[in-house]
C-alpha cells in the first residue's frame, strides 16, 4: 500500500515550520480522483494540500534546478534515482536537496486504468489501493482491478521500489520486482526482425508532434540549449509530422539518456500521442547495464556512465 498522504503532510509541515527547508515539492490532488499534480508548499498551510497515493506518478526531480536554498522533494525510487543523477551532474548541491523517500509499488497509468472501466471517467468517485488491487469507486460501487493491470508498465519491473538514495524514508521498504533484471517488456521488440523493429518505430515516430513534453518532463533533460533546437549543425529537421526529423529527435534523445534514465516513465506518461518511449529507454538501459554493469542513480557515489572508463574497455575497443 502506498498511501503516504498523512505521513508526507506531517513531515512536510515540520520541515517548513522548523525552517529546515524553504519549500517542499510534492503532489496534490488533480482535477480527477485518478490524477495528481505537482504541488509546491512554501508555508506550513500549503502542506494541507499534499497527497501521496497511487496517482502520484510524475517525477518531481524535474523541478529541482540549482536551488539556492534547501528544498525537500517527495521522491519515489525513480525520482530519487533522478535526483542522485542530476546532483552528480551538477544540477544541485547535495546539501540543498532533502530527499524525502517514499516506498512505492507502482503508480497509475491513466490510459490503462480508464480502458478497464465501462463507465465515463467523470463518474470515478475515488481510487484507492487495497493489497495488490486498485479499487475504483464508480457509479455502481467498487471495481477491483489487479494493480499490475493499471499501473505504468515500467512500474511492473521497478528495481527501486524503495529509494536507493534518500535522507529519510516514508513507508515500509518494498523489495525490487524480480522481473527487473529480465526486461520482459522488451520481449516484443526482441522477437521482431530488424526490419520489423524499424517499421514499428517508423509508425511510432511518425506520430510525434514535437511538443517536447518528453524532454520537459524529464529531470535528466536539463541542457540550457537542447540539441534539437540547435542550428549549427541542425541535428534534426524541425517540425512534427515528418519521419526523418522525428526519428532523429527521439533516437537522439534516447541516446543522450543512456545510463542517465531513471525509468520513471514521465516521458511516456506525458506523450500526447502515446509513443512507447519507455521501450526505447529500457532498450538503452539493458544495453548499458549488460555492457557496463551500470544503472543510473542507484547510489550517490556512482559516476556517470560516460565518465566511466575501465582499462578492459580499451582492449575491447582495439578489437572493434
Amino acid at each position: 500500500m502506498s498511501n503516504h498522504t498523512d505521513a508526507v503532510r506531517a513531515r512536510a509541515k515540520q520541515l517548513l515550520e522548523s525552517g529546515e527547508v524553504t519549500r517542499v515539492i510534492g503532489h496534490a490532488r488533480g482535477t480527477t480522483p485518478y490524477r495528481s499534480r505537482p504541488h509546491f508548499a512554501s508555508s506550513p498551510e500549503q502542506t494541507d494540500a499534499l497527497i501521496h497515493d497511487v496517482s502520484c506518478g510524475s517525477n518531481l526531480a524535474v523541478y529541482v534546478s540549482k536551488p539556492k536554498e534547501r528544498v525537500a522533494v517527495i521522491a519515489k525510487g525513480c525520482d530519487a534515482r533522478s535526483l542522485a543523477t542530476i546532483i552528480h551532474e551538477g544540477q544541485a548541491e547535495r546539501g540543498n536537496v532533502l530527499i524525502l523517500g517514499v516506498s512505492c509499488e507502482g503508480k497509475l497509468d491513466e490510459g490503462r486504468l480508464l480502458r478497464k472501466l465501462d463507465f465515463p471517467p467523470r463518474q470515478v468517485k475515488s481510487v484507492r489501493e487495497e493489497g495488490d488491487e486498485v479499487v475504483v469507486e464508480g457509479p455502481a460501487g467498487d471495481v477491483r482491478l489487479p494493480r499490475d493491470d493499471v499501473i505504468m508498465v515500467n512500474c511492473t519491473y521497478c528495481r527501486a521500489r524503495t529509494p536507493a538514495v534518500s535522507d529519510e524514508l516514508i513507508g515500509e521498504p518494498v523489495p525490487p520486482r524480480e522481473e527487473a533484471d529480465q526486461y520482459p517488456d522488451l520481449g516484443g521488440l526482441d522477437a521482431m526482425s530488424e526490419a520489423g523493429r524499424a517499421e514499428f518505430w517508423r509508425a511510432q515516430f511518425e506520430k510525434c508532434i514535437r511538443c517536447y513534453a518528453c524532454r520537459n518532463a524529464c529531470p535528466s533533460c536539463f541542457c540550457p540549449e537542447c540539441f534539437v533546437d540547435e542550428y549549427h549543425p541542425q541535428w534534426a529537421l524541425h517540425g512534427g509530422g515528418q519521419f526523418r526529423g522525428n526519428w532523429m529527435w527521439n533516437v537522439g534523445r534516447a541516446q543522450h539518456l543512456a545510463g542517465r534514465c531513471s525509468a520513471c516513465g514521465s516521458c511516456q506518461r506525458g506523450c500526447p500521442v502515446d509513443i512507447p518511449l519507455m521501450l526505447l529507454n529500457r532498450w538503452m538501459e539493458r544495453a548499458t547495464n549488460q555492457a557496463f554493469d551500470h544503472l543510473a542513480g542507484m547510489s550517490e557515489q556512482q559516476k556517470q556512465l560516460a565518465a566511466l572508463f575501465r582499462k578492459s574497455e580499451a582492449k575491447a575497443s582495439e578489437h572493434g
Binding site: H39, F40, I209, A213, N216, H238, G239, G270
Partner: peptide, 27 residues
C-alpha cells in the same frame, strides 16, 4: 501553483484547434 508547475512543453498548443503560432526555419 499553476505556472510553477507548467513544464513549458507544447501539448496544449499543438493539440488546440485554435492555436496557430508557428516557427519559420531554413533547411
Amino acid at each position: 501553483q499553476v505556472w510553477n508547475r507548467c513544464l513549458s512543453c507544447g501539448i496544449c498548443a499543438f493539440l488546440c484547434p485554435t492555436c496557430h503560432c508557428f516557427d519559420i526555419c531554413d533547411q
